[in-house]
Design a binder for these strands. Structure first.
Lengths: 142, 142
DNA sequence: CTTTGTGCAAACGATTTGCAGGATG
DNA sequence: CATCCTGCAAATCGTTTGCACAAAG
């Protein structure tokens, strides 16, 4: 799951995106993270050492990367939109105590037959969302 | 799926909620709807004939009903939170064209074994979200 | 050099909050 | 009659937008 600077740049170009330091930063950051940061968390991380990107630019980079199919939104809690550079199908686990999100391998769960839906509905993709407690919060629990 | 006025009132009281016209209205409305309205859609519907409830009250009623376990949030799209008076476990289908949401019976899909999660994660509940096209949008499609 | 991206600040839509008056149990 | 709810308007949060300048190809 490690990418060279050059690989990332080529990926961006291949999708027709101009390569700017900010856009590169957003995508590279997302690629090397295993959590699913919100736009604000990303912004904080990117500007941690030195300011590299403005709020508006992070949002627009995320939109550009998303319409290019390089990242996707993850909706697991109210109010915030999180982002995921893993575009392969997979499921999600969310700790309802600390909010941590973790990927679950696609093969982990039995496949769902979308042809079983009631006539009229055409299912195209699906995902399983598991809600529970992660080890960290489980340990702290009263 | 039909409830008498008295039943609804008793349910509210049983959960320790005071019965006010506004709160009753929100819950009764949700119970008789099959879609999953947002707070704003609910507000519009409630005030359609005559003004019965303010924006702030609808939001606070929803919060009260939710913490009483009578309704639940449904998160399927960015930006809005929808509400569901069906608290039994079930899955969701969402048409990515018109945004319509429909319940899918729990038995429709093979059960997921939450014990299979990686050690450390304690799954408590899960649901399947299917994205696709509904019949109405399928017919209109080019 | 043409097109697209950036940064700022103001605008926005959904939800929340503070508070005074009103209704519930 | 003590407690909790309602309505209003202002406040807040995440996200979007308009626009002048800067950078990418």
């Amino acid at each position: 799951m490690s990418f060279t600077k050059e690989e990332i740049i080529q990926t961006l170009k291949k999708r027709g995106l101009r390569v700017t330091p900010q856009r590169y930063g957003v995508y590279a950051n997302l690629l090397q993270r295993q959590d699913h940061p919100s736009a604000e968390e990303l912004l904080l991380d990117l500007n941690q050492a030195a300011p590299t990107s403005s709020q508006a630019t992070v949002y627009s980079s995320l939109k550009a990367l998303q319409s290019a199919g390089l990242i996707r939104e993850v909706l697991l809690e109210e109010g915030v939109c999180r982002y995921d550079a893993n575009t392969d199908p997979h499921h999600h686990f969310r700790c309802h105590h600390c909010g941590a999100i973790e990927d679950i391998a696609w093969e982990q769960f039995p496949p769902v037959d979308l042809a079983q839906l009631r006539p009229g509905l055409q299912g195209e993709r699906y995902e399983v969302t598991v809600h529970g407690i992660c080890e960290k919060c489980d340990a702290q629990n009263p």
